[in-house]
Amino acid sequence: MTMTTPTPEPTDRPTMTPLTTLTCPLDAQRLMRDGQSWCCADGHRFDIARQGHVNLLPVQRKRSLDPGDSKAMVSARQRLFALGGYQPLASALARRVLALAGQASALAVLDAGCGEGFYLRQLAGAADEQQLSLTAAGLDISKHAVLAAAKQSRDAAWLVGTNAALPLEDACVDVVICAFGFPVWQEFARVLKPGGHVVLLEAGAEHLLALRRILYRELKPARGEAGVMAAEAAGFVVEGEVEHLHAGLSLTSNEQIRDLLTMTPHLYRAERDGLARAEAMTALAVELHAELRVFTREEAQGAA
C-alpha cells in the first residue's frame, strides 16, 4: 500500500444551504425559526448554539448521559481523515449520490449519522463542482461530533439527534446517506420524498483486516445480507449491484495507530493482549474496504 497524503477539504465558501424542515423531538410539530432558537406551536424551544448547531435529542431518548462518539473519538477520526486514505470512499459516495440527481438542479440530503461531517462536506464540494444546489442536514447522536461538524461548516443544518426518531418532516429529503452508521429504515422511509433513495456505505469483510488480525484471535464473519433484508422489510429495493470500494491507509507512527484504535469500536471490544500488541506498534498498513449500496422505496418504484 502506498503512503497517503493529507487531502484538503472543500473550499470555505458556501457549498450547501441548511435544511429547515425540522420538527420538535417532543411532539413532532413543525419547528419555526425564532431568532436564535427553533420553536414549536406548543412552546418547546431549542436554542441554536454559538457554533450554529442545535440539540434536538431530548433526555428521554438518551441511553446514556453522553451517547455516541466521545470527544476523543471525534478528534482521532478528524486526524485520520486528514491523512487522505478515506477520500476514495467519500468520493465514491458523492459520485453515487450525484448520479441519483439526474437532470435535477437541486437536491435535499440528510446525512444520518454524520459524525464530524466529513462525508457530507465532500458531497457538498462535489455538488458545487457540478453546479447542483444542495440543501442539507447532518444529524448525529454525539454532541461532540456535531459540534466538530458545525465548527468546520455552517452551511448545513447540524443536529444532535437520533436516527430512531429523526426530527424532520415527512417526505422532506431526496436522499439519505448513512456512512458507517446505524440505519433505521422505517424512519428513512418516512422522511424521504416519493422516489427517494438511501445511499448506504458499510464496512466490508476486509475492512481494517490487518488491524483486526492483531487484535483478535478469531475474526467474526461479515454481517452478510442482514442489512439488505432489513431494508427490504421496510419497503426498500436494492438499486443495481453492490459496489466494493478499496483504499489503502499507511500509518507511520504510534500516535496514528492509537488514533485508528480510538476512532473505532475495537478499542473497547479487542482482547487485552491483542490491544497491547497494536498499541506497541509504530507502523501499520491497513486496507479500507467498504460496500456501497443504493436503496429505493418499493412503493415509489411501483407508482412510476
Rank of each mutant, 00 (worst) to 15 (best):
R61L: 10
G138I: 07
R217N: 02
T264I: 05
H244C: 07
L89R: 11
F236Q: 05
F182V: 10
A148L: 06
E299S: 12
L100H: 11
E225I: 07
S70P: 00
G196Q: 08
A126D: 15
L168H: 12
R79W: 04
A136E: 12
D273Y: 00
T4K: 08
A112G: 12
Q78S: 10
Q131V: 12
A136K: 11
R154D: 14
D27V: 07
A106E: 15
D273L: 07
G84Y: 15
P25N: 09
A233Y: 02
Q36T: 09
A270C: 01
A157G: 05
A189Y: 03
D273C: 00
N55E: 01
E291K: 14
L208Q: 05
G196L: 11
L249E: 10
A127I: 14
A205L: 05
A101T: 15
H207D: 12
E225P: 08
L201R: 06
P194A: 09
P58R: 09
A210F: 02
S64G: 03
A278T: 03
A304Q: 14
A49Y: 02
Q36M: 10
P67A: 00
L93W: 10
A171Q: 15
V184M: 05
Q130E: 15
V199N: 08
R277E: 04
P265G: 00
D273M: 04
A28E: 15
V191A: 08
Y216M: 00
G161E: 03
S142L: 01
K151M: 11
D27P: 10
E255M: 09
S75H: 10
V294P: 01
K220D: 06
G43C: 07
S253F: 10
L139A: 03
R13Q: 14
R154F: 02
Q29P: 01
S133K: 11
S153I: 03
V146H: 02
G113Y: 02
Q60M: 05
L200C: 08
A49M: 01
H266W: 00
L200V: 06
K62E: 07
W185D: 03
V160Q: 00
P183A: 07
R213K: 15
L134W: 14
T282S: 15
S91V: 15
S37I: 02
H246E: 13
A189T: 06
P167N: 07
L123P: 13
Y86N: 13
E116Y: 11
E116Q: 13
M32S: 12
A203N: 06
A127L: 14
C40N: 04
H246T: 14
A270P: 04
L211E: 06
Y216E: 01
A189S: 13
N254Y: 02
A210T: 12
E271C: 04
L147N: 09
D34G: 00
